[in-house]
């Protein structure tokens, strides 16, 4: 069974960390995955770079550029995953744009992902009601496509997204792109009620969260919190100083983990 389905059985709050595969290089990515697994992150979101990431802010755009310079593509990510899967059991999902997957071939993507131990994919420019083929293939192959809910979604659409999303639901906290400079919009409780009413799936919230003190409030409403750009900033800062980078990343994530544990 897909590793993501264990999440809803666990009676706890979750921390999800995003990093870009191949930023600054694949070796460091590998080490970071071992680290994140070891210190108790619930899900790892692994970015696959795309030249035109419209839903991402500057931080992740730059991380993608660095990864592209390393020649990162899906094949290399699958190879990396096959290697790390021998050592870690944390759920890992890919985050990328639809053209990357479509170009690779939808069926081939899902089969290769499964073979490499990838549990699901987050595709910000693929709404649940486009491309029914990928949805059907995912269901058939026990692969999760995680759909995103925005605060601007209508109630009827929110209901459908929650129904279709697999593994967990990704709630976007801001009107805007990824990044730490976004002002979070005030939370719409109608949405939360709908999210809860229609599904028992875990709901994780992301976009614009950068400080450990924000975690407590977010976890009052959600089952988990997703940290992306703030973590990528640390990778950017320490770049090729691998030892220092790992140390700083650990320190950063541990602060959030403490917040998450206390929110239980």
């Amino acid at each position: 069974m897909n590793r993501l389905y264990n999440l809803e059985k666990q009676n706890k709050k979750h921390l999800i960390i995003y990093l870009m595969a191949g930023d600054p290089d694949l070796k460091t990515t590998e080490k970071l995955i071992y680290l994140l697994d070891k210190i108790g992150v619930s899900v790892i979101e692994l970015g696959v770079p795309f030249s035109d990431p419209i839903a991402d802010g500057v931080t992740i755009q730059k991380a993608g550029d660095r990864a592209l310079k390393q020649g990162i593509n899906l094949k290399k990510v699958f190879l990396l995953m096959k290697k790390v899967r021998k050592k870690v059991n944390v759920p890992i999902v890919l985050m990328t744009y639809y053209n990357i997957i479509f170009n690779f071939g939808i069926k081939k993507f899902i089969i290769e992902s499964k073979k490499s131990g990838i549990d699901g994919a987050i595709i910000p420019d693929l709404p649940f009601d486009e491309e029914s083929e990928i949805y059907d293939l995912a269901v058939k192959n026990d692969f999760c496509i995680i759909y995103l809910v925005s605060p601007t979604n209508t109630i009827s659409r929110t209901k459908k997204i929650v129904e279709k999303s697999m593994g967990f639901v990704y709630y976007i906290l801001v009107k805007g792109v990824t990044g730490i400079n976004n002002k979070r919009s005030s939370f719409d409780f109608r949405h939360l009620k709908i999210l809860r009413k229609f599904s028992k799936k875990p709901i994780f919230a992301g976009f614009g969260v950068s400080m450990p003190h924000e975690v407590k409030e977010i976890l009052r409403y959600f089952d988990g919190v997703i940290i992306g750009s703030a973590f990528v900033n640390i990778i950017e800062k320490y770049g090729n100083k691998t030892e220092k980078l790992l140390k700083e990343c650990k320190k950063f994530v541990c602060k959030f983990l403490t917040g998450v544990k206390n929110a239980r």
Partner: peptide
């Protein structure tokens, strides 16, 4: 109705824009 010309077109947009483009 879904914005397709044969198999081309569509609304491959992030959800945040969805309500807006539907409107």
């Amino acid at each position: 109705k879904k914005g397709f010309f044969g198999r081309f077109g569509g609304k491959f947009a992030p959800e945040t824009l969805r309500a807006l483009i539907d409107d």
